[in-house]
């Protein structure tokens, strides 16, 4: 039953022939298909990964743009607020200044009017007093010395009445 003979050699040849036939006609194409499929899948996965990365980068870009836009909007609103505030402050200051100017002008004007009125009153007082005194003493007191004397008197009266 255990009888080693030339069948051994024949069998080795058989196997080599089988291997050669299969390797030439079947395995090469089959392994090529398996390789192709593997490469195809790897390529697909790579491409999917690529797409995912692109999408992520786009997303980040959009998020950045959104944040930028929001920041910009905030800045614009801030700026507008500041401008408005400044405008308001300026107007208020200007109004204040105008008010003060007007008050000052008015005060000056009033003072001037008052001075003028006093001057007028003094002149008329002097004239009247002179005329009255002239009538009283019945003589003309038109000399410069008389006038000065009367003015002095009138000033003294006015100052006392002030």
């Amino acid at each position: 039953m255990v009888n080693i003979n030339a069948t051994l050699i024949a069998q080795i040849l058989n196997f080599i022939v089988l291997l050669a036939v299969l390797a030439k006609f079947c395995y090469k194409p089959l392994l090529k298909v398996l390789d192709d499929r593997r490469n195809h899948i790897i390529k697909d996965l790579d491409s999917a990964e690529q797409t995912r990365l692109e999408a992520e980068s786009l997303k980040a870009q959009y998020a950045k743009q959104l944040a930028d836009a929001r920041e910009e909007a905030t800045a614009i609103v801030d700026k507008a607020n500041k401008v408005g505030q400044k405008l308001h402050d300026d107007l208020v200051a200007q109004a204040q200044a105008e008010k003060e100017q007007m008050l000052k002008n008015a005060t000056e004007h009033i003072e001037q009017e008052k001075q003028q009125a006093l001057l007028d009153v003094r002149t008329q007082v002097v004239t009247l007093a002179t005329q009255i005194a002239g009538k009283i003493v019945d003589q003309k007191l038109n000399g410069p010395e008389d006038q000065a004397l009367i003015a002095k008197t009138a000033d003294t009266v006015l100052d006392a009445n002030k």
Binding site: N3, T7, N14, V17, L18, L22, F25, C26, Y27, L30
Partner: peptide, 24 residues
């Protein structure tokens, strides 16, 4: 040479080739 073994070996080879050929 054991001819029965040889016949069966060849038959096996043919079947294997047929299987692999059918698959590929």
């Amino acid at each position: 040479i054991n001819m029965q073994t040889m016949y069966m070996s060849w038959a096996t080879m043919i079947i294997v080739i047929l299987i692999v050929a059918a698959a590929t």
